[in-house]
Amino acid sequence: MKLLTGNDLNTGLVTWWTGKDWSIHIEDAVDVGEDGETIAAAEELARRINGPYVIGGELTAEGPRPAHIKDRIRALGPTVRVDLTLKPNDPSAAERVI
């Protein structure tokens, strides 16, 4: 699958394209197929996103999983501070993104 991601223009937080909006939870992300670049350009112009880009990934039981470790860490948060990630109560989450 293809995912569209970027950082929120104001908060800087990592966000994922949900088909109609942006979410900080990768679980909400949809497959953008071939439309990623077009959506990215429009959203950037509308100043809802900073530095959007399209990445590859696969759909797993837990939800979309980016192909590259960098984007898996982006989706979670720093692996060395589980308390600051999106899964603060799941100590093994960091292991799974590696």
Binding site: N7, T11, G12, L13, V14, K70, I73, R74, P78
Partner: peptide
């Protein structure tokens, strides 16, 4: 001010 992995 940088844009880093998780935020500014």
């Amino acid at each position: 001010l940088y844009l880093q992995l998780h935020a500014y």
